[in-house]
Simulated assay, not measured.
Amino acid sequence: MELDDAYANAAHIAGADAYPARWAAKAAAFREAMSETGHARLDHAYGPGAREALDLFLPRGEPTGLCVFVHGGYWLRFDRSYWSHLAAGALARGWAVAMPSYDLCPDVTIGKITRQIARAVTTAAAEIYGPIALAGHSAGGHLVARMAVAGVLQDDVAQRIHSVVPISPVADLRPLLKTSMNAQLGLDMAAARAESPVLMQPMDIPVTVWVGASERPAFLDQARWLGEAWECPVVEAEGRHHFDVIDALAEPDSKMVQALIG
């Protein structure tokens, strides 16, 4: 369809096919190491479904707060098991990190996934006291942006939100109506508008939009649209594309981790 190539990331990244296996291997090694030291609580349910579960990684000592990372994959693929290693940056700074899975389209709607992530954040917040920082990548960037809108999270959790960093977010879902993947996403114009953060007002919390400077023009546009709509900073990470822009989450001293937890 008209915008298929515009939103095709892998086709424009050298060696794209190797990334998922590499992510999965790093994540598995990280979970094993954290489990061996007693700093991982895996498969913590936040709902009745098989995919409604999260992994919680704990720092040494009392956590300063809670960071939640929501994965991407166009609401169609992946789960939390690919990304565990990205918890390293916040953990090294003393924050606990939760990583939820969620149901995928076409089995559920994007609206239902939004509600699942709200439950996941609420469940993790009951385990860890203190401020809450939210980060998400691509479709996950959309989902954490939705958490920044009043009424999505219950008030006692929303009041604890310290910062939100949508990374390469899909902030306006309307263009996806012109992609072949919408056969699985099941969006119509009303549903796309109802789930587009660019058409909503955020709560009064710090939001920093992050995107790789070498990403597809459509994703640069999406990041800029959200920055303009929400009047928040947009960081374009030099030399980074859609698949490696998230690597900075594993680095304690990165600018991305600084924006997320200060």
Rank of each mutant, 00 (worst) to 15 (best):
Y102E: 00
Y7W: 05
W95N: 05
N182T: 03
H241L: 06
T122I: 03
A21W: 07
L187N: 01
G94R: 13
R51C: 08
W75R: 03
A171H: 02
C232P: 03
E231G: 04
D107M: 02
R93I: 11
A27S: 15
H242C: 10
A126K: 12
A11D: 12
I261P: 12
A8W: 03
D247H: 12
A133W: 09
A6S: 09
Q159K: 11
L199T: 00
D204P: 01
A18K: 15
I128S: 08
Q116C: 01
R119T: 02
I261N: 15
H12N: 09
R77I: 04
D188S: 07
A237K: 11
G239V: 11
A28T: 07
A98R: 06
A25D: 15
A124C: 00
F219H: 15
I128K: 09
G227C: 08
L134F: 08
G212K: 11
R60N: 14
S168I: 05
N9I: 12
H137N: 07
D79I: 09
Q201A: 14
I205K: 10
C232E: 02
V97N: 04
V170A: 05
I110V: 10
L249Q: 09
W95S: 04
R193G: 03
I13T: 13
T208I: 00
V68R: 08
L66G: 14
D204K: 10
I261G: 13
S180L: 07
A24M: 06
A40G: 12
G140R: 11
A229L: 06
L56F: 14
S81L: 00
M256G: 14
A25N: 12
Y19Q: 13
S196Y: 07
E2P: 05
I117Q: 01
N182D: 01
